[in-house]
Simulated scan of single mutants.
Amino acid sequence: MAFITVVIMGLIFWVYGIIFSAIFILLSVATMILQFVLSRRKNPWWVGLILPGLVLGLTMNIALFLAISAAFGYLAADYEIVLYVLGVINIPTAVYLLIYFLCRIRKKKSKLDSQTNTENGIKIGQG
């Protein structure tokens, strides 16, 4: 009887793991699409930095909590673990900043091309 209970509990945890993973992947893709949309906006330029700023602030709070907890002995962690966690959690920040800068470089390049074409007397695009 105990074996059946263990099997059923294992299946329940497996299903919840798949559901959690699917939700996490959907949220990750949705935030990346949101970052892409915010980075391509015309004005103001700082709108594309909202998500990286929020994620960076959240990771700084988590790192501060871990460092304070380790300093007072509430958590069995040292500063190497705090720095490791800080680096791992900031991976989305790096991805958001990469999206932001790639969109901005592309936007500047297309704006420069349209200005060059306009100066030559050729009107292409809306600049």
Results as ranks from 00 to 15, higher is better:
63 A>N: 09
66 L>G: 05
20 F>G: 05
20 F>H: 09
119 E>P: 02
17 G>C: 02
16 Y>M: 12
81 I>C: 05
64 L>F: 11
89 I>C: 06
59 T>P: 00
15 V>L: 07
27 L>K: 07
27 L>T: 05
122 I>S: 14
15 V>P: 01
12 I>N: 03
11 L>H: 07
22 A>G: 06
123 K>D: 09
76 A>L: 11
6 V>R: 15
12 I>F: 04
67 A>F: 03
35 Q>H: 07
115 Q>V: 08
126 Q>W: 08
105 I>C: 08
103 C>N: 05
47 V>K: 02
68 I>S: 13
55 V>S: 00
94 A>D: 07
44 P>E: 06
59 T>F: 10
122 I>C: 11
104 R>G: 00
89 I>S: 07
28 S>K: 04
70 A>Q: 05
64 L>C: 08
102 L>A: 07
3 F>Q: 11
22 A>K: 10
60 M>K: 06
78 D>K: 04
45 W>H: 11
42 K>Y: 13
103 C>A: 11
120 N>M: 04
62 I>C: 03
126 Q>L: 07
37 V>Y: 05
101 F>H: 03
19 I>F: 09
85 V>I: 15
61 N>L: 15
115 Q>P: 00
68 I>Q: 14
45 W>T: 08
58 L>D: 04
29 V>L: 06
91 I>M: 11
120 N>D: 04
45 W>A: 09
62 I>A: 08
37 V>F: 00
69 S>M: 14
74 Y>G: 10
122 I>V: 15
121 G>I: 08
8 I>T: 14
3 F>C: 09
12 I>V: 15
111 K>A: 13
65 F>H: 11
43 N>F: 15
19 I>Y: 04
95 V>Q: 00
101 F>I: 07
56 L>I: 04
58 L>R: 04
127 G>I: 10
52 P>G: 05
52 P>L: 02
101 F>R: 01
127 G>E: 14
13 F>I: 13
16 Y>Q: 12
91 I>K: 03
24 F>T: 11
90 N>V: 08
5 T>G: 12
63 A>F: 01
76 A>W: 10
119 E>H: 09
37 V>K: 09
25 I>K: 13
88 V>R: 11
64 L>Q: 08
80 E>K: 06
85 V>F: 13
64 L>Y: 10
2 A>P: 03
3 F>V: 09
109 K>E: 15
